[in-house]
Design a protein around this nucleic acid. Structure first.
Lengths: 149, 149
DNA sequence: CTGACTGCAAATAGTTTGCATGACG
DNA sequence: CGTCATGCAAACTATTTGCAGTCAG
C-alpha cells in the first residue's frame, strides 16, 4: 500500500469527513486489488469481510474517494464505472477484447507532451487521462477470421 | 455523409439484415451529428422526425450498427454509452471538466506507434482507441483555486 | 453530545426481453 | 409468403434518495 493510511486519514479529517470502518474497508479493498473493481465487486469483497457494510455505503464511499482524488473511475469495456486506486507509480492502461472481454494491461503511454499542449491551448488543468484500446485478442482473432468486405 | 448509403445498405443485406426506415433514420441521425449522442438523444431526434420509432428499436439498431462497425461506442465523461459515426477522418478526442462537464475536443493523437507496438506485443488486433483527458476547465480553475495540500 | 454516516427500503434511470403484429425482400 | 424487425409493456439491473437509528470526534 503506497499511499499511507495516515495520509488518507488526515486528508479525510481535513475536509471534515469522518473515518469510519466502512470507509476503511472500501478503501482497503480497492488498494489491495491491482485491478479495476466495479461497485458490485467492491461491495462483494468488502461485505464478505465486513458483513455490516451495505451496497449503498459502497456507492457513497466511492463518490467520496473519487472526489478526494484517492481513487479514479475507469471505463473498462462495456461495463462502466469501475474504480481503481490512484497510484501514479503503477499507472497503466488497458487493451480490451471487444469479443470476449479479455483485458491486457500496458504501461507505456507518452501523453505528457500532448497534455501540455492541450493545457496551453484550452486553459484546462489536466489531472488525468483515460486511454484504452479495443480490438480482438488472439483467440478471438482466430475464431473470427476477418470478414470479407 | 462520407459513408454512402449504398455501401451501408449492401453491408446490411450481405449479413442478412433488412433495411428498414427505422434503421435508416437512426443511422442518418448519427451520421448528421458531429457529436456523440446518447441512446436517449438519438431516440429523441429520430422520434421527432419519425414518431413511429420506439426507443427499443433505437437500442437494437445501435447494437446492430456497432456490430457492423458503422458506429462506435464512446465513453464520454460520466455518461457512458454515447455513439458516434465511425469516421476516421474526423477522429477526435475529448477533454472533460470534472467540475462542470464542459467538453473540449481535440484531434491530435499520435497513438499509432504505440498501437503497433501493442499489437506486436499482445497479439491483439486493435480496432480503436479511447483517449480522454480530465481536469478542470478555465472557469472552474478560477473558482476552485487549488486546495492547499 | 452533535452532526455526520449508515443501512434499509423505496424510488429512479437506463437497458433488455417476450410476444403479437407488421413489413422487407 | 416467410422471416426478420418493430413496438409495446413488463422485467431487470444499476444507482440514487429519504429517513431514522448509530457512531466518530
Amino acid at each position: 500500500m503506497i499511499i499511507t493510511r495516515n495520509r488518507i486519514a488526515s486528508l479525510l479529517r481535513k475536509r471534515g469527513y469522518k473515518i469510519t470502518p466502512q470507509r476503511r474497508a472500501v478503501l482497503n479493498t480497492i488498494a489491495l486489488s491491482h485491478d479495476h473493481l466495479t461497485p458490485a465487486a467492491i461491495y462483494e469483497k468488502v461485505h464478505r469481510e465486513n458483513p455490516g457494510v451495505g451496497l449503498v455505503t459502497v456507492y457513497r464511499t466511492l463518490d467520496l474517494l473519487t472526489e478526494l482524488g484517492l481513487i479514479c473511475e475507469v471505463h473498462a469495456g462495456g461495463s462502466c464505472r469501475s474504480y481503481l486506486m490512484r497510484r501514479p507509480s503503477e499507472h497503466h492502461h488497458h487493451l480490451i477484447c471487444s469479443e470476449c472481454g479479455t483485458v491486457a494491461d500496458f504501461a507505456e503511454c507518452d501523453l505528457n507532451k500532448l497534455e501540455q499542449k492541450l493545457c496551453r491551448k484550452t486553459g484546462f488543468e489536466i489531472n488525468g487521462h483515460l486511454l484504452e484500446f479495443s480490438g480482438l485478442c488472439q483467440n478471438c482473432r482466430r475464431r473470427k477470421p476477418e470478414d470479407a468486405t
